[in-house]
């Protein structure tokens, strides 16, 4: 407390002044009731001018914010719901796509296998045909060459032994 020592000084000063004029520190008079009336009027005036209108503004704003918050929350929930819906849809579509791909793959494989088998078969058939042809031609060639073998061997003989020995 600073007032401790400073009050000693105040005391001195005050005593000096008191000699001049008796001070009235606790001087109750009509100021008291008038001040009370004035303050009651102030309360009423400020209630009408300040507390009511501005309080209404504050409450309205609080309501507005609360309403906005509620709306935002509802929208958020809606968005959330939409999101989950889309997500499930997406998952389902993905699954469907997967099955489609799988079936397509299987089909393609089946087709490919079939074609390969067919082609192989065709090739087999052709090869066999070709083999037969070859065999046939070989045989015909053998058949055609048979008499020539005879003649050629006779010629070889005549060449080797001489014409007189042959026949």
């Amino acid at each position: 407390m600073i007032s401790q020592w400073s009050l000693l000084l105040t005391t001195a000063v005050a005593v000096v002044e008191e000699v001049e004029e008796k001070g009235k520190l606790f001087d109750f008079d009509a100021t008291l009731p008038l001040m009370m009336i004035q303050l009651v009027v102030l309360v009423l005036v400020l209630d009408a001018l300040f507390y009511k209108p501005l309080g209404k503004v504050l409450d309205d704003r609080a309501d507005y914010i609360r309403g906005g918050l509620g709306e935002a929350k509802a929208r958020l929930a809606e968005a959330e719901e939409l999101k989950t819906k889309y997500e499930t849809e997406l998952a389902q579509t993905r699954r469907e796509a997967n099955t489609v791909i799988a079936t397509a793959k299987a089909d393609a494989q089946k087709i490919a296998a079939g074609q390969i088998a067919e082609t192989q078969q065709a090739a087999q058939v052709q090869r066999e045909q070709a083999q037969q042809e070859i065999d046939k031609q070989k045989q015909s060639a053998f058949a055609a060459l048979e008499p020539q073998i005879e003649a050629l061997s006779r010629q070889i003989l005549t060449k080797l032994l001489g014409a007189e020995l042959v026949k």
Binding site: A30, Q38, L42, L49, P53
Partner: peptide, 29 residues
């Protein structure tokens, strides 16, 4: 009756300040 003039002068100043501030604040909310 006797009243203390200086108290009322300053209190009127304070009250005036309050009322002016209130009016200025709520004039165009």
């Amino acid at each position: 009756f006797q009243i203390h003039g200086q108290v009322f002068l300053t209190s009127w100043f304070v009250i005036g300040l309050l009322v002016i501030a209130a009016v200025a604040a709520t004039r165009n909310v």
